[in-house]
Design a protein around this nucleic acid. Structure first.
Lengths: 162, 162
DNA sequence: TATTGTTATACTCTATAACTATA
DNA sequence: TATAGTTATAGAGTATAACAATA
């Protein structure tokens, strides 16, 4: 979004290009998924819970969410009747996320929506460019842009008692 | 960040690729710019204010920021002695952002940092892929991914008087 | 009446801290 | 002692509302 390079220069503004495209795609995806009442996170949890038996911690890992964010996401899925928390037979601390029949139906539709939005976006590109784009992005994700640099977060006050 | 497509499928997950790369690049850029005491927004305002005489509203437009976000960004630049608010000669409501000498020096360094981070990132790609990536991204920004879809924001309570 | 910049603040998002139950 | 999940809430980020000065 934020243009990092003035228009009078010819350097490619990779930051702007990535920020803008990811932001716009995100809004489009959110709007499309809203049709079936899901957020991107709910979709993510749903499809990965459907694949195999997974606990909240495992799903949080996959979706790169904090465990507290996972709590509210699973709350939303339960409230919508799309998933349920079940005790894990292997570890009594853990909860397995079981997708309901309705949840499975919605997940099928939401995955179609996701694929369609991706397809429509990529369809705007000539095929060779499309392939190169995907290949380049995968190379970045696997290489230089694999891991975020983390900045030291400021300390936090203890919680108010009462 | 959020994987939109389970690993067992072969559809390209454009959302994940864009979200991940833009997020990681953003953290790298933030860390690199912190060396000269700037945020990405401060850099953005600084270089565009340096190009020609511009008001806060114009700079907000360029950086796609809200005008209230611009206020705090300019506050930070003024506090750091890198820019100053000056009354516009054309419109007495408006403030032109004037970059100080120190601001110009810092802007030159921060632009070098931005270019370097972009160059280092793109250097990880074979040249043909690099060119295709940039071309594809520009095509998306100019086409299907030009404008965000906006979702209706929930209304807001009036401000407390007192 | 509309717009620039400002202040105050509501709201969202996310993560930290503290806790319970279990490993 | 460490981990899974939960609750409460701190704090960052951002945008809306209202306002003063000016167009």
């Amino acid at each position: 979004m934020t243009a990092m390079t003035p228009q009078t220069r010819s350097e490619p503004d990779l930051s702007f290009l990535l920020d803008h495209t990811s932001h716009v795609l995100r809004t489009r995806m959110a709007a499309a998924l809203a049709e079936v009442g899901l957020t991107a996170r709910m979709h993510c949890v749903l499809v990965h819970a459907l694949e195999e038996e997974r606990t909240q911690a495992q799903l949080a890992e996959i979706g790169d969410m904090d465990k507290t964010t996972m709590v509210v996401t699973v709350d939303a899925l339960e409230e919508a009747g799309l998933a349920e928390r079940r005790p894990s037979s292997a570890d009594r601390r853990a909860r397995v996320i079981a997708v309901t029949e309705e949840g499975a139906r919605v997940a099928r539709r939401s995955q179609e929506i996701v694929d369609r939005v991706h397809r429509e976006t990529l369809a705007a590109l000539p095929e060779d460019e499309r392939e190169a784009l995907l290949s380049a992005m995968r190379r970045l994700v696997g290489g230089v842009l694999a891991e975020p640099v983390e900045s030291p977060r400021p300390a936090r006050r203890a919680r108010q008692s009462g």
